[in-house]
Amino acid sequence: MRSLLHFIHTYHFIILFILIEFLSIALVIQYNDYQRAAFLNSSNRLAGGVYKKFSTVNNYLSLKEKNQELLNALAVSKNHSFNAFKQNAIGVADVMDSVYVQQYQFIPANIINNSVQKQNNYLTLNIGKKQGVDKGMAVVAPNGVVGVVKDVSANFASVISLLNQNLRISAMLKESGYFGSINWDGTNYRYITFSDLPNHITIHRGDTVITSGYSAMFPKGELVGVVDTVDQSQGGEFIQVRVKLAVDFKKVKNVMVVKNLFQSEQLMLEESVHD
C-alpha cells in the first residue's frame, strides 16, 4: 500500500496526463460522428472475422435442418430432371445437347452477416470475385429469392436483401402469368408488397408468386412467396397484394448466387433498343 502511494506520488504527473488524455479521446469518440464511425469501422475488420467464426458454429448446430432443406431442394430438382419423365415420344432422337444451352450457373455460398430489422437491409456472403461473383447477380436460397449482389471484394460479396426498400424486382403470378413488381415496405420481415397488378384479375389467398425472368438477373420461376391478402381499397388501375415470403430471412444460411451466362448479351440488346 505504501509503495503504491509512493508510486502514485512519484508518477502523479504522468498518471494524471494519461487519465485526462483518455477522458478527452473518449469524449472525441463519444460525441463526434466521424470518429465514431471510423472507430467502429476499423474494429469491424475484426468483427468480420468473429462473425465468420460464429456462423461456422451456427452452421454446425443447424445441420439437421439444413440437411432437410437440401433434401427438399434435391427432391425438387429430381422432379424436374430428365429421369423423372417418362419417354413419351419413342423414336424421336435425343437432341438435348444442341437444343438446350446452359443459361444459369448456381454458385453455392454462405451468409456470414445478415439483418432484418433495418429499413434497408444488406447481407454479406463468404464468396466474392475470386469465386466468380459479380455486381448485379441474383442471390437465391433453395426455397426462394434472397436479393441482388451490390458490391464484391476479392472474397466477399455484399448483397441487397429483398428486405431493402431500394430493391424492386419483377415478379409474376404463377397461375395466371400477370406480372408486376415486388418491393419491401420496411415493416414486417415476413411480408413483401406486390404492386402494379391490373385490377380486373382475381387473386386468391395462397396463389404462388414467382420471379418473372424479365430482368436479366433472376431466372424465371424462382419462388418469391404466396399471396396473403389482396388490397383493393385503393382503387385505380392497379391493386396491391401482400405476399408472405417463402424465405425466412431470420434463419436463411445457405444461398446460391445465380450467374446469367447471357446477361451481357440481353442487356446489350435491350440497351440498343432503348436508344
Binding site: 504527473f13 485526462i20 488524455e21 478527452s24 479521446i25 472525441v28 463519444q30
Partner: peptide, 18 residues
C-alpha cells in the same frame, strides 16, 4: 463543436511543456 479534439491536443501539449 468538436468535443474532445482540442482538449486532447492541448492536454498533450501541457504534458510536454515541462
Amino acid at each position: 463543436d468538436t468535443i474532445g479534439m482540442h482538449a486532447s491536443a492541448t492536454v498533450f501539449m501541457g504534458f510536454l511543456r515541462p
